[in-house]
């Protein structure tokens, strides 16, 4: 470990901003920028600490959901939609042999999320014809559960950094 850690440094920057720089700022524009920076520094600290695991958990939740949707598409003859998902799931998502950066993880999770978005659009288009099919309904509920999980995970990176921490701008 390199000491001080990245989190240590960020916390020190935030404290210096708050105790040294902000009291010296008199203009509204400068004060506004300073408080925004403080919030975002806390947010970045949280992301350094937690975002990697959140992204891994998200990918672990997205992959089986996509696989279930692909099976449904295949079962109802939506061959192209099924093939697109299967191809996406078959692609290696992270670099092999090197430690993935947060950008790598975010990119990999984002690609899966993109596939889920495309699949959801297709499911919505099929609602008129398949909206009463039990598996269709189950998948739509599963997607909503996935969305709820996403929101809750995202809140871990937002609430402690911003909520109750003063003016935003």
């Amino acid at each position: 470990m390199i000491l001080p850690t990245a989190e240590d440094v960020l916390q020190t920057i935030e404290a210096t901003l708050e105790t040294v720089l902000r009291p010296a700022l008199s203009g509204t524009v400068e004060q506004s920028a300073a408080v925004s920076i403080g919030h975002l520094l806390r947010h970045v600290r949280l992301r350094l600490a937690r975002e990697g695991q959140i992204l891994l958990d998200n990918m672990s939740a997205t992959r089986p959901l996509l696989a279930e949707i692909a099976t449904f598409f295949s079962d109802i003859g939506e061959i192209d939609a099924a093939a697109r998902i299967e191809a996406a799931l078959a692609r290696p998502s992270l670099p092999v042999g090197t430690y993935p950066t947060l950008t790598d993880l975010g990119g990999a999770a984002g690609l899966l999320r993109r596939e889920l978005e495309v699949a959801l659009a297709r499911l919505q288009a099929l609602r008129a014809t398949h909206g009463e099919v039990p598996e269709y309904l189950r998948l739509r509920i599963a997607i909503r559960t996935w969305i709820a999980g996403q929101l809750q995970a995202e809140a871990e990176l937002i609430e402690p950094a911003f909520s109750g921490r003063g003016p935003r701008r």
Partner: peptide, 26 residues
């Protein structure tokens, strides 16, 4: 712009929460 960084983090999160609340997800 620093405010766009804020808008792209906290503001979008709260807007998504409102959508989730309306749909009974959160």
């Amino acid at each position: 712009h620093i405010r766009q960084a804020w808008t792209g983090t906290e503001v979008i999160h709260i807007a998504k929460q409102v959508l989730g609340m309306a749909m009974g997800l959160v």
